[in-house]
Design a protein around this nucleic acid. Sequence first.
DNA 1: AATTGATATGACCAAGTGGTCACATGAGGT
DNA 2: ACCTCATGTGACCACTTGGTCATATCAATT
Lengths: 215, 215
Amino acid sequence: MMQTVLPTFINLPAAKQEKIVAAALAEFADKGYQQASINVMVSSSGIAKGSMYQYFKDKKGIFLYIFDFAISLVRRTLMQVKETTQEADFFTRLEKSLLAGVEFIRQHPRIYGIYLKILFDQHVPQRPQLLKAVRQFAAEYFQSLVRQGLERGEIRADLPGPAATFLLDALFDRFLQATCVPFFDVTLGLDQAPPAEIEHRVKELIDLLRQGLAS
Amino acid sequence: MMQTVLPTFINLPAAKQEKIVAAALAEFADKGYQQASINVMVSSSGIAKGSMYQYFKDKKGIFLYIFDFAISLVRRTLMQVKETTQEADFFTRLEKSLLAGVEFIRQHPRIYGIYLKILFDQHVPQRPQLLKAVRQFAAEYFQSLVRQGLERGEIRADLPGPAATFLLDALFDRFLQATCVPFFDVTLGLDQAPPAEIEHRVKELIDLLRQGLAS
DNA sequence: AATTGATATGACCAAGTGGTCACATGAGGT
DNA sequence: ACCTCATGTGACCACTTGGTCATATCAATT
């Protein structure tokens, strides 16, 4: 994905690499691209500013490396969820997928933070490509679930596939946002909710998807 | 909402006020709060920098004024939609509401742009209050629709109200984002879609809500 | 010990930021 | 014509930014 990491960084001892990645991840997640400060990154990872430019060509290079690191972790995790729920029925798979998303964010809040910061910021380098990569991946995940659900006859045969995918994507992303962005969700109070309540809400929402709203 | 407009601004001729508001709106919508430049605002509205500080206490003051201006326009519009669809059935009301949202964004893209920029930016002044104000308003709108839908027996009596509200909120907000943020929606291709297709997609999604996914 | 080539460093640079202030301008009242 | 007072103005301030570069450090080879 058009990296601009310099070989110097690759040759670094793993521990030092991790410190730098952690610092950059935290800063980008907190401030977004433009507002993130390289001065903060270097001082919080304990290296000199000049060193940073021996590791990466420029700020854009740092960001793209971090983004690549992040998205590959997401991909691996989601693929694993997909495999381990292979046998379950459609709605159970949805449930497990959403819970896995919640757990992923609990473990890697800054990765999701970067995604949220990127979403609506026109001035992020390579934004079209980066955004498309994330969104396409999510859409394909849901498409694949829907396809299998149709094949097994677990969902209506006359279901408009793209619309269903869109709905799932919308609901899931919003649910995840609600669990980790304070003041964002005023109806379910998901942020900092205990796991038991989150599980209950997931079940409730998926039931809603299953049955529909009409009487 | 804790304004910091100075009387000097209020006494300004309306045309000059509008130029300043337009410039600030455009800049905040494009860059978000921190990244927005007062230098750009003053130069694009043709006033001196010093003048800006005779009109507003500081950057925060400008932003809060603009936000207040924006949200009151949203409130008025949504209230009007609510009234004019009073007699329609639940699902028709949903349809009209979503289409009204699309139309509002078409006419005031920068207002929605500010909302999007604020959503995930921890460093916006008064963020908790501002975000809560917007979200609560949307939630109450859907709650009121759901309540009336229940009373009229148009939706299932055993429906969990908060979950339904959450689902509607999620879907609608995502739909609106998809219509105006390029590369965001890869499944329906809503951005820059012709009105006829948007209407079709709205109907399709609301039908999905009505009937559910299950076979 | 001497040499060499890669890596580490932080003072420094130009540019841009939000905000200030001494002064200029103008309208109204005497 | 003179004074007054609200308003307009842009040079200026301290500060931060991303990025550079001459120099120092270090490890390996001769």
